[in-house]
C-alpha cells in the first residue's frame, strides 16, 4: 500500500506533514549533511528580523527533565543576509521554505514581510508573535488578542504568500488568540511556541538562564500542545493548523493529527538528533501502512471524546 502523505493547509500544500520548527533548524542548510532537505514537508527557518540580531548574553540554555529552557533572544542574520545568502541555497536544495519573522514593533513586522513580498522561493511566511525571550515584540503581541489581530491585519497586505501565525501557549485562552489571528487575516495557525519557565541554581540562588526566565520545550510540553491544538481545532474547524511541541516519534505526529493538526513542526528533537525529521517522514509512512491509513490527512481531527460529567460525583 502506498500512503498519500500530502497535506493541504489552505493554499499551502506540503508533500508530507513533517516540517521543522523555527529556532531549532537554523537556516536549514546546517542540516543538509543529516537530512535530505527536499524530503521534508517544510522548513521554518530561524526567526528573521529587519536587521541582524545578536541575541541575549549567556547562559542561554539549561536542561530540564524531558526538555530544556532557552532564552536565545532571537539571534539571527537579518532578512537581507537570509535573502541574499541562505535562501538561494535552500531553493537550490529544493527545500520548502517557511520564512519565520519577528519585529519589535508592528512597523518592523510589516517591513520584514514586505521585504519577502511574494518571493516565489518562499512557500509561506510565519509570524512569531510568541517568543518569550525578548523584551519587546514577540509575546507582547501574542498575549493580547486585540494587539495580535491588529498586527496580523497590518502585516497581511504586505504579502500574498500564505500567512502562518505562531501562537503563544502563555495565555489563559488560546482560542481567543487563534480567533484574533484568523480575523486579522492568518491563513494557518502554528502552535505552540515555548512555555515560560524558570530554573534555579539552588546553590547560588541564581536563575540558570541569563534572561532569568526561558522558554520550555521538549517532550515535557507535548500534552499541553496537544490539548491546545484540540481546543483550537474544536473552535475553528476549518483553520489549518501546524501542531508543535515535543514531537520525537511518528506516534507523536499521529497524536497531533488526531487532535486536529494538519501538519506538525518538529522542534527541540532536532538538537538531539539532527536526522530525526527525515526519519519521521519515513516512520510516519510506515505507521500509516501498518494501520491501513491511505491518506495521512484522514487522521486530522479524528479524536473520539467521551462526554464529560456535568457535575462532580459526590
Amino acid at each position: 500500500m502506498s500512503v498519500d502523505l500530502t497535506v493541504h493547509l489552505g493554499r499551502l500544500t506540503l508533500k508530507n506533514p513533517i516540517a521543522t520548527a523555527s529556532g531549532t533548524f537554523g537556516y536549514g542548510l546546517e542540516f543538509a549533511e543529516f537530512v535530505d532537505l527536499s524530503s521534508l514537508g517544510a522548513i521554518s527557518v530561524k526567526g528573521l528580523s529587519l536587521r541582524p540580531c545578536l541575541g541575549n548574553p549567556p547562559p542561554r540554555i539549561c536542561e530540564t527533565d524531558a526538555g530544556m529552557l532557552n532564552a536565545i533572544g532571537l539571534q539571527n542574520v537579518g532578512i537581507e543576509e537570509f535573502l541574499g545568502e541562505k535562501l538561494p541555497r535552500l531553493h537550490e536544495a529544493r527545500a520548502t521554505v517557511i520564512a519565520n519573522v519577528w519585529g519589535d514593533t508592528e512597523a518592523e513586522y510589516r517591513a520584514v514581510v514586505e521585504r519577502i513580498g511574494d518571493d516565489p522561493r518562499v512557500a509561506a511566511v510565519e509570524l512569531n508573535v510568541s517568543c518569550p525571550n525578548v523584551v519587546k515584540g514577540g509575546m507582547v503581541f501574542g498575549n493580547d488578542p486585540a494587539a495580535l489581530g491588529a498586527l496580523v491585519a497590518a502585516v497581511r497586505p504586505a504579502t500574498r504568500l500564505p500567512l502562518v501565525v505562531k501562537l503563544s501557549p502563555n495565555v489563559t485562552d488560546v482560542v481567543a488568540a487563534a480567533r484574533a489571528a484568523v480575523e486579522g487575516g492568518a491563513d494557518v495557525l502554528s502552535l505552540i511556541n515555548t512555555l515560560v519557565g524558570l530554573s534555579i541554581d539552588i546553590e547560588t540562588r541564581e536563575p540558570k538562564i541569563g534572561f532569568t526566565t526561558g522558554g520550555l520545550s521538549g517532550p515535557a510540553i507535548r500534552p499541553v500542545a496537544v490539548r491546545m491544538v484540540w481546543e483550537v481545532r474544536r473552535a475553528l474547524p476549518h483553520v489549518p493548523i501546524f501542531g508543535i511541541g515535543g514531537i520525537e516519534t511518528a506516534e507523536h505526529v499521529v497524536e497531533f493529527l488526531i487532535a486536529g493538526a494538519n501538519a506538525v513542526q518538529v522542534g527541540t528533537a532536532s538538537f538531539r538528533d539532527p536526522g530525526i525529521s527525515g526519519r519521521l517522514v519515513r516512520d510516519l509512512a510506515r505507521w500509516c501502512e501498518r494501520h491501513g491509513v491511505e491518506r495521512v490527512s484522514d487522521l486530522t481531527a479524528t479524536l473520539k471524546t467521551r462526554p464529560r460529567p456535568e457535575k462532580a460525583y459526590v
Binding site: 531549532t24 533548524f25 537554523g26 546546517e30 542540516f31 530561524k46 545578536l54 541575541g55 548574553p57 549567556p58 547562559p59 542561554r60 540554555i61 539549561c62 536542561e63 530544556m68 532557552n70 536565545i72 539571534q75 527541540t268 532536532s270 538538537f271 538531539r272 539532527p274
Partner: peptide, 22 residues
C-alpha cells in the same frame, strides 16, 4: 559551554566576544 545541539543551530553555547558579538 553548555550546548544543546553541538552543530551551530541552537545558539545556546555562545560566549561573549571582544568584538561585541557572541
Amino acid at each position: 559551554s553548555e550546548m544543546a545541539c553541538g552543530f551551530g543551530v541552537c545558539l545556546g553555547c555562545v560566549l561573549p566576544g571582544r568584538d561585541g558579538r557572541f
